[in-house]
Design a binder for these strands. Structure first.
Ligand SMILES: [Mn+2]
Ligand SMILES: [Mn+2]
Ligand SMILES: [Mn+2]
Ligand SMILES: [Mn+2]
Lengths: 219, 219
DNA sequence: ATAATAAGTTAGATTGATCTAAATTATAAT
DNA sequence: ATTATAATTTAGATCAATCTAACTTATTAT
């Protein structure tokens, strides 16, 4: 029922909301690259449909129904990304753009078949969790690499940001998910981290980068 | 550049035009399930863009550019259908609906990768030719089964109509492309054909069905 | 040749998604 | 407590895609 435009709003509301599930309408409009009045009128529409909690001048949040709808769209997006990487051989930096379009395809069968062929994956190629058929998300609790201390050995499990730039940067350092990383040292001045991985590879990663690397302690 | 709506017009213009490449605007509007005035205004738009030859009250046709654009969309549609059947295990009767949506995805890479994974197929699951990357179509010259005579042995190569109903009918008779068929007899009264295939299977097919079965003599 | 019918076009309205400019409300700063 | 600033909303316009009703042109039948 939801148009691609409406689906994009729900998805952004879901993924960009803060810890309390709230977001300001102007911030939302920026993510969606539309003007504030455009977002304002669309939000009224979604509120009318019972998908968004909206009161004038207050922060926005999704209703239970809105969250469920959003989860279905995110499911379609992330299954697609996984399919493109695993079954079609695309690099993890190439799939977001395509998934951004395919997520709007209306065909439960199509996505369920992807899911089946992939063996019901739990996460997408960037480590983000894939909602199940009921819209339920089971996310591991991960910590930022930048919060780890010298001597910690961790598994790179997800990215807090999956921009093409960052993904290409990671490619250039042969950094990929499921890799074991060891914190060799931390520069007190700027928090740069010396990381060891892949037998003997050592790289200095900026705090900015380490902030976006989500890891699991041990495994 | 073309919207999904415009793409659907171009595709329909291409596939539903007569031998001279022409079609009436009302007929077009019926295929697209829009009113005649809607089609009229869209055709003016496409004509403005140099994709359609349009003169008031005359039949419509695609320009060279329009034909090329149309071929690209048809390429996306048919590659998708082939991919869905060959790589995702869908039945040939299930893929048109999905392809109708995926054909509007804007990502040359995505479709070229499908093409590559499929080994550059020449035809879709219904035997229709797939335009190449340059929009060139190479179609075999096929004849209708209904034009064959008793004793002819032919290969079922394509369908003149791929409606879900017809495809399910063919499924129920285990009729599929590349099958060798032999015309055993033709009923003079109604042109029903007695066809033998798959070792010893024999079926009586109506003229209506035989009209839509396109075959190649010998192989 | 005229009239009836069918096909195609024009006029005018609607809906969703978008914009800019202007007004209002909330928040922050003095 | 006022005032300045930032966020949000309202007003009003535009554009694509659609519709129905009315009109015009072409085709067909008598
Ligand atoms: Mn993505
Ligand atoms: Mn999208
Ligand atoms: Mn098709
Ligand atoms: Mn389509």
């Amino acid at each position: 029922m939801a148009s691609p435009t409406e689906e994009n709003y729900l998805k952004t509301l879901f993924t960009k909301a803060d810890k309390n599930g709230e977001i300001a309408i102007t911030e939302l409009s920026q993510y969606l690259k539309v003007s504030a009045p455009t977002a304002n009128s669309m939000i009224k529409n979604l509120s009318q449909q019972g998908l968004v909690n909206y009161e004038k001048y207050k922060l926005l949040s999704l209703t239970a129904r809105g969250k469920k709808e959003a989860a279905f769209i995110i499911r379609k997006h992330r299954l697609t990304e996984m399919y493109l990487v695993e079954k079609m051989g695309f690099g993890w930096e190439m799939v977001h753009e395509i998934a951004e379009q395919i997520e709007h395809i209306d065909s439960p069968r199509f996505f369920d078949r992807m899911d089946e062929l992939l063996g019901y994956p739990k996460v997408d190629p960037h480590g983000s969790p894939i909602p199940d058929k009921n819209g339920k998300i089971t996310a591991k609790t991960l910590v930022k690499l930048s919060d780890c201390k010298v001597g910690d050995t961790v598994t790179l499990s997800a990215l807090a940001n999956s921009s093409e730039e960052f993904l290409k940067y990671l490619n250039s350092k042969q950094l990929q998910l499921e890799l074991k990383l060891r914190v060799e040292a931390i520069e007190p001045f700027d928090q740069n981290m010396k990381i060891k991985y892949l037998r003997n590879r050592v790289e200095i990663l900026s705090q900015m980068a380490c902030n976006k690397l989500l890891v699991e302690k041990q495994l």
